[in-house]
């Protein structure tokens, strides 16, 4: 489970690593919104350009990242081909495949572009931001709202992301063990889903109780140290850059 680098913090000492968490998350929000509003080709190119710049700035390990993104590549290909063949329209003269339509290919590419931008934004932000900062920023946002247990929600967010790689690792391990015992011979889909989920869930419930105990043992308290955020001029500059990209994509 340790080898999944996507969604995982990769230590570094770059401008993006040191950036104020609040502004970084604001940038993430803006860029993923921009991705959903993007329509024209130059919108996509602009966003990709910005992201490639950010990836270089953050000095994240390209090869490991690409390997993790294979999964999304598969989804993107699927989405493009589904759209290409299901959306009715004119055939492409240079690519005369039966059922393929120009409108479909365009729609598919658009969708794929959006997905790719969102995934990349996320890879950059999660790669340069420790989970604790995510929790702290959310706590900071919720702090002024009355009756909202900000510290508790922050803990939930941090734990959720800490648990995802653990869950995926456990799931893969368990599926391998079941394959070794011939689960594939089971044709009944109910039994198959049950045998896939039951041991997995049981183990995870037990493990969750252990996490609870470990947190309790170290005196977990919702009245806890709050983060102090500091933002530099450079952080604001990056934020303004993202804001202008967002405004440009939305308004043109």
């Amino acid at each position: 489970m340790a080898e999944i680098t996507f969604f995982q913090y990769i230590y570094g000492d770059t401008i993006l690593h040191r950036m104020d968490g609040r502004l970084k998350l604001a940038c993430m929000l803006l860029l993923s919104l921009a991705a959903s509003f993007a329509t024209a080709l130059h919108h996509y190119l602009l966003a990709f350009g910005l992201l490639i710049f950010a990836l270089r700035l953050a000095k994240l390990p390209w090869t490991a990242l690409l390997k993790d993104l294979r999964f999304f590549g598969l989804i993107i290909l699927l989405v493009i081909s589904i759209n290409a063949w299901t959306i009715p329209g004119d055939p492409i003269p240079t690519l005369p495949l039966p059922g393929l339509s120009r409108q479909g290919v365009v729609a598919g590419l658009r969708f794929a572009g959006r997905l790719a931008i969102i995934v990349l934004v996320c890879a950059v932000v999660t790669g340069t931001t420790p989970l604790r900062t995510f929790g702290q920023v959310i706590e900071w946002v919720l702090r002024p709202i009355p009756f909202v247990p900000a510290a508790r929600i922050a803990t939930m967010v941090t734990l959720t992301f800490a648990l995802i790689p653990v869950l995926l690792g456990q799931f893969a391990e368990m599926m391998a063990a079941q394959k070794a015992r011939g689960i594939e011979l089971r044709k009944n889909p109910v039994r198959r889903l049950y045998y896939a989920v039951f041991p997995f869930l049981e183990q995870m419930l037990r493990r969750t109780d252990q996490i609870v105990e470990a947190m309790e043992a170290r005196g977990y308290s919702e009245v806890r140290t709050r983060a102090v955020f500091k933002s530099t001029k450079r952080d604001w500059l990056i934020f303004l850059l993202c804001l202008s990209v967002f405004l440009y994509v939305c308004c043109s």
Partner: peptide
């Protein structure tokens, strides 16, 4: 306990 379980089920 419920905080951690909420995190588990969200994940």
């Amino acid at each position: 306990r419920m905080t951690v379980y909420v995190a588990l089920f969200t994940a």
